[in-house]
Design a protein around this nucleic acid. Sequence first.
DNA 1: CTGCATCAATACTTTTTAGGTATTAATGAT
DNA 2: ATCATTAATACCTAAAAAGTATTGATGCAG
Lengths: 313, 313
Amino acid sequence: MMELKKLRYFVTVATLKNFTAAAKSLNTVQPAISRQIASLEAELGVKLLIRNTRAVTLTEAGSYLLENAQRMFELEQEIVTSVRKIDKGEIGQIRIGYLASACFSFIGELVGLFSQQLPNVRVQLTELTSQEQIDAFNKNEIDVGFSRPIPNDMNFQLDCKNIYNDRLVAVIPKCHALSKCESIAISDLKEENIILLNRMKAVGLFNKINTLFHQEEINPNIVSQPHNMQTLLTEVSAKLGIAIAPSCVAKLYTKGCSFIPLDCTGIEVPLEIQCLKDNNNIIVEEFVKLTTQNKKLIMQLSQLELSGHYPPK
Amino acid sequence: MMELKKLRYFVTVATLKNFTAAAKSLNTVQPAISRQIASLEAELGVKLLIRNTRAVTLTEAGSYLLENAQRMFELEQEIVTSVRKIDKGEIGQIRIGYLASACFSFIGELVGLFSQQLPNVRVQLTELTSQEQIDAFNKNEIDVGFSRPIPNDMNFQLDCKNIYNDRLVAVIPKCHALSKCESIAISDLKEENIILLNRMKAVGLFNKINTLFHQEEINPNIVSQPHNMQTLLTEVSAKLGIAIAPSCVAKLYTKGCSFIPLDCTGIEVPLEIQCLKDNNNIIVEEFVKLTTQNKKLIMQLSQLELSGHYPPK
DNA sequence: CTGCATCAATACTTTTTAGGTATTAATGAT
DNA sequence: ATCATTAATACCTAAAAAGTATTGATGCAG
C-alpha cells in the first residue's frame, strides 16, 4: 500500500531534488528519507529517482507520480474538510415531513430561521399526514416530522416533543344563528349538520371529535367528510353544515366562516415534532432545538385569539 | 495525516459493521482495529462509528467517509497502475525530430513498427534540420532526432549512433551529356553550373561538398542555393545546373534527373540517431534499439542501387 | 590527477508505533 | 437476572521508523 507518508516524502525529495534538504524540510534525517524512498520504489517495483551525488533527477514514472501525488493530497484534504463540516452539521441535509393544515402558517418561517443558522444544509419539505409520516420514518424517507401524537405502539422508536396544544373550535357559517354565540357546547350541535375531516386523513382527530359527541350521547349527523381542511372550510361557507376543527385552520382561507370556541373539555389537539430515537444526526438535533426554542413564535403564527368571533372584524 | 491503512481499516469495519469480523478479514486482532479506528477519529476530531455491543452504526460523517474513501483507493490504484506502465514504457510519449529529405523514405515505416510494439505511446514527429534538432534538444522539445553528425563541441550531451552512410552523387539533367556516364569525377564539373542546398539548411553537407571542390582546386560556379532538396531536384530537371546531394534524394520526385555516382573519396554522408545522454527514458531506449535493429531495412528504404544510372529504367 | 567537499547509502542503535494476549465493561437477548 | 456478544483497556511483544555514525561514490578545484 502506497502510504501517504511515503508519498509526501517522495514529493518533497522530488521537488527539492535533494535528500538532505528534504529531510530538513520534513524535520527528520537523511537516512530516514533514503529508506522510505527506497521502500516506495520497492513497493511499486519502479525506480522513481535517479540518485547522483551531484543531482537527483526524476525518471518518467517519477515525474508522473510527482504530478499525480498532488491529486491524492487534494482528495484527502477535500474529504477531511467535508467530514469535519458534516460532523459539525455545517453541510448535509434534513428531510422534513409536516402536516399541511397544522404547519403551513409557521413552517416557512421556521425553515428560514434554520437555513440562516446552517446555510449549507439542504432542506427538503414534504407535506404528509400523520400516518404517512410514520411510514416515511420506517422507510427512512424523512429525518423529522411535525405531526399530531401517534398511538404508543407505533411511536416506540420515535422521540416526540410537544410544540403547542391547539384547541378544537366550531366552524360555523357566518349567517348561521350559532355564529353569534360567544361559545358553543357540543349539545348545541345535536340537530346540526356536521362536517368532519375524513377519517383516513386524521384518525386521531376524527376519533377525538366522535368522543366529544358520544360523551354527550349525541349521534352527530355527519353530512360530509372532505379530504382536506380547505375543502372543509369551503363547505362550511357553502352552508352545508358546521365543522369541528383545530383552531389553526383559521389561518387558511376563511371567507364566510366564523370560529367559535367550544365550551367543553378534551378539545386539546397537540402538535409534536418527532424524530428517530438515537438518530445521532446533529443537523436533526439542531433543527429540533431551534424548533423547541421557537415554540412561542410557532404558537403566535398558528393561533388566532380565541376570545370572540373568528376571524376578527 | 489520514493514512490509507487506517482508511482501509475503517472501511472494513464500516462495511461489516463489526470490529471483530473486520479484524479477521484484515488478518489481525480486534484491539488493533479498535485502536486504529480510535486514532483515525482522534485525528479527524470526528466520531465516525457509534459502537454498541449489538451493532456498529455510522455517523453522518462516517457515512460520507465510507463513500469517499473508495475514491482515494481508486485514485491510488490508478496512479500505481500508470506509474508501472510508464516504467515499462507501455504508456508515454516520444518526440522525434527528423531530417526531412534523409528520412522521409523510412520514418513512416519505422514509427509504424514502433507503434506496433508500444501501441499506447504517443509519437510526435517534427521535421527539423540538424541545427534545429540541436536547439530542440536544448529546449527539451524532442527526445530523439535523426540528423547528420554535428560538430563535437555541440554534441557533448548527445548520444549519437550511426544508422547508415549515404553517399554523395551527382544529380544531372537527363538530357545532359554527363548523365550517360557510369561515374563522374569532381573535375568533370569544373565548367558546369552547380546547384547546392543552401548552406544554412545543412552546414555540414555544404562544407563537405566545398571541400571536394577545393581538394581539386576547383572554384565551383554555384548558380543556385535552394532551401530544400525537392527544389534542388526541380532546378536540375529545369537544367539550371548539376547538383551534388546525398543519394537518398533519389527517393524524392526525380523526373528529368539522373543520379550518377561520384568517383572520389570523402563522399560519405552519415545519418545518425541522436538522443540525450543519460536520458533514462525507456521509451527512447526502445525506439533507439528498434532503429538500430532495423538499420538494414532503413538503408534499403533510403538508398537505390548505386550501380548504373538513376533512377533505374 | 589528487584531495576535498558533497551527498546518498549502509550498518547499527534507539525510539516509536503497531500488533497480540488477556481481561474488563457494556449491553442486548433469553 | 444471567448469559452471550462485542468493543475497550491494560499490558506485553514485535515491527517499523527514526537517529547516529560511517562509508562510498562522484563531481570539482587546485
